[in-house]
């Protein structure tokens, strides 16, 4: 019985890893093409807008893959995921707030497209937070 759910869990995990890897590959590919086109070919503004939005689209694929995995989890796992995501949102929210102030008032370097880093930062902190949240329930 538990063996069976373990197998299902492993299949789900593999499926998730594959979905994520594919989404990441698409992301990198689209981004490289977009950056090349925008920097080298100097296209009209609307083309640049379309390329920028197209580059963001694979993130939706990642979210879909994650939602699929989330829905397949049991309620305890879901709880761990949710708590760590709350922690990540709070930490990244305040961290970006601090850097924003340093940027505007204390002459810290203004990163072009700094907002780009919110998504990776949240994902990273969220993964980190999962370790701590999971430990609390051990």
């Amino acid at each position: 019985m538990s063996c069976e759910t373990d197998v299902t869990g492993r299949v789900m995990a593999r499926q998730y890893a594959r979905d994520m890897a594919i989404a990441a590959l698409i992301y990198v590919a689209v981004l490289v093409v977009s950056v090349f086109v925008v920097r080298r070919l100097d296209p009209p503004q609307w083309v640049a807008v379309v390329l920028a939005l197209a580059s963001a689209a694979p993130a939706l694929l990642m979210m879909r893959a994650y939602m699929r995995r989330f829905n397949a989890m049991d309620e305890f796992q879901q709880r761990v995921q949710m708590e760590s995501m709350l922690a990540a949102a709070a930490i990244v929210g305040f961290a970006s707030f601090t850097y924003g102030f340093l940027e505007s008032f204390a002459g810290f370097p203004s990163i072009d497209g700094a907002l780009l880093w919110v998504f990776p930062a949240m994902t990273f902190v969220w993964g980190l937070a999962q370790i701590f949240v999971a430990r609390r329930y051990k």
Binding site: S34, V35, V38, Q45, A48, V49, L51, A52, L53, S55, A56, A59, L60, M63, M85, L86, A88, A89, D112, G113, A114, L115, L116, W117, V118, F119, M122, T123
Partner: peptide, 19 residues
């Protein structure tokens, strides 16, 4: 968190690529 993460990614790219 999900909406803001995606929105910031999208806008960050617009900033970077579409000025």
């Amino acid at each position: 968190a999900i909406v803001v993460a995606f929105a910031t990614l999208g806008y960050g790219l617009l900033e970077d690529l579409a000025d």
